[in-house]
Design a protein around this nucleic acid. Sequence first.
DNA 1: AAGCCGGGGTC
DNA 2: GACCCAGGCTT
Length: 340
Amino acid sequence: MNLPALHAALLGWFSVQRRDLPWRVTDEQGRRDPYRVWVSEVLLQQTQVVRGRVYFERFLTAFPTVQALASAPQEAVLKAWEGCGYYARARNLHRAAQQIVQSGLPSTYEGWRALPGVGPYTAAAVASLAFGEAQAVLDGNVRRVLSRLYAVEEPTPRWAQETADALLDSDHPGEWNEALMDLGATICTPANPRCAECPLSAQCAAFASGDPAQYPAPKKRAAVRQISAVALLIGTAQQAYLEPRTGALLGGLWGLPLEEVGPDEDEAAALLRLTARLGAATGRRLGTAQHSMTHRTLAVTVYAAEADLPLTPVVQRPLPRLDHKLLALDSADRVQPALF
DNA sequence: AAGCCGGGGTC
DNA sequence: GACCCAGGCTT
């Protein structure tokens, strides 16, 4: 591989085709705010740029500085993250902000890597983009570009990182990293890559093979589980009894009280468990909502219920999309006597 | 190394 | 429905 030619080709393309993104703004000296870079990188973990962009604006408005983030309640941080998924990212971001206020802002790869929620990718991205350190990022885009460049169908993590390290333009590490990712996102796409517009096609083994899209081979994925559950709406879609969710799944968020329908169980049994736990009286059936997550498909049936429990305004709590769907079953066709 | 963690875009 | 997305943490 001719490295100088590779660097010149990609950086030349990037100088013209780079995407204009809010976390790429620089000051008069051409420096970026490390806080903005860090927030954007965490937001973009397993999240596409178009969506990350919306949440970035929302998040930076709520927490313009690392001090503002550190001093906010965790629930406010999760509220700004509501609907974005992978909520451990928000909890870790919050914890890391508090560590930064205590111990100072890291300026090296190793320093960033030590913070919660900052892995090899994010540490390399912040170190190179905000501090000019020569660290190569390896994300899904880079993995795919390298897989094609060398026609390696099943790149191991080790091979991919070593190859990314070897190709890095140490004189322009931040630019190089972003250029490689932009190429993967806009030209070297998973399906139907636009090789005719690619600045690296002349050096690309997958292009030479005639079927670049076969690289890399698809990853094997875990089977999706089907889950049924029942939930109670005590109150209204605007003002309801909500429970905090704990554990890995949706931890830190709130939602309607919910019970899973066991494999050898009918819905009535789960409903009985739920009403017994809360001392609630079941009302009418409001409907069933379907919700799919990466690893499971949920069918949740919601019942109206009465109980002597505190109601809180829904807008005050961070709720996952699932619970917004459940609340939407309390639809306009339901008469709300309190309003009349 | 493999599972788990959301939600949505795209083909 | 399959596959993916500027991944990281836990086991």
